[in-house]
Amino acid sequence: MPDTTALITQLRALLMLTQTEEQIARIRVAQARTDAVRRELQQNAHHAAERSTAIAEQLRALGGVADVVTPAVGRLAALVKGTVEQAGPIDEALLGDLQLEHQLLDRATYLKVLAQVAREPEVERLAERLITAHSATVEWLTVVLAEEALGGPAALQPTPFQRVAGGAARLANLPVRFAANTVNRAMDTAQHAGEQTGGTLTTVVDDVRHRAGALTDAVRETVDAGRLTALRRAERVAQQEGDDTAAEAAAATRRELGDLTADELPIKGYDSMSTAQIATAVEDVTEPEELDLLIRYEETHKNRSSAVSAIQTRLAALAKEAVGIDS
């Protein structure tokens, strides 16, 4: 009779990791940008729970001792991961998710070979099921990371803590001279205009400085209407003074905050389009930054989930192309 010790060991490890995977999927549901992504993550969590049940059944069939500790350990691991990752930017959290999926995939592949050697066809079929599921998740996470790298609106949004952490990381790498020059240009523009500066100028300078360092999502959430007004004023003054650099810095910051007009969108006549028309029109958009503008505009105006999903789907296609995955 073949020795099944190695099979049981791997099944136990897979059970714990799958429990962790399920809980992480549930954590990610709250970070989904669109309803479609939210449903997908909910399905992922449900399917992970089904895989856990199947793994546990195979353990019992092989004579493995019933284990009530492993599932609890898996849930605890997910809780610890979810808590610790709040101290870092979202890309690090997603890389952690990807690492987990690679480990699950590698163990499932190993399990398949072990099952072949042990002549356990049921375990082999389970391993093939796991390989298929984890291969798909690895691909999905790779695309989400590519979306993040392209600078577009990723399928998963960072939590407030991750927004701050990501912004801090970017600002820490900001070339000081570039930031100083941008601030100086903004101050010069306002001073030459002879307009009253005071607290408004301080706000404008602060906003432009943040833009120079890739404006963080944390700032984007905390900026109020007064700051938007100040940005519009800074842009207007810079244009009057002929300072195109400062004007564009203020305008870009304003756009990132969602303060856009229909004329600034890369798709003409966007406001009058149906969701189906938008889905067709975005196929001609090739720049992730433009897709980001469209999503921010949609989210701050009509906020149609179907339109956001259509734009997000286009970004995912660009991300797949960037990492060499066939659509």
Rank of each mutant, 00 (worst) to 15 (best):
M1Y: 00
D3W: 00
T4K: 04
A6G: 11
A13G: 08
T18L: 06
E21I: 01
T34F: 02
D35F: 08
Q42K: 10
N44E: 12
N44G: 15
A54Y: 03
E57G: 04
A61I: 03
A66R: 12
L76S: 11
L76Y: 08
A78H: 02
A87M: 13
A87H: 13
G96I: 01
L100K: 01
Q103F: 07
D106S: 15
V113Y: 06
L114Y: 03
L126G: 02
L130T: 01
S135R: 09
T137E: 13
V144C: 09
A149K: 14
P153D: 12
Q157S: 10
Q157R: 14
A168Y: 12
P175S: 08
T182H: 09
A186L: 04
A186E: 05
D188C: 02
T200L: 13
V204M: 14
V208M: 07
V223I: 13
D224Q: 11
L231S: 03
R232K: 14
E235L: 02
A238H: 08
A246M: 03
A246H: 10
E256H: 13
G258A: 04
L260A: 06
E264V: 04
S274I: 07
Q277E: 15
V282I: 08
V285M: 08
T300I: 11
K302M: 08
A317M: 09
I325F: 12
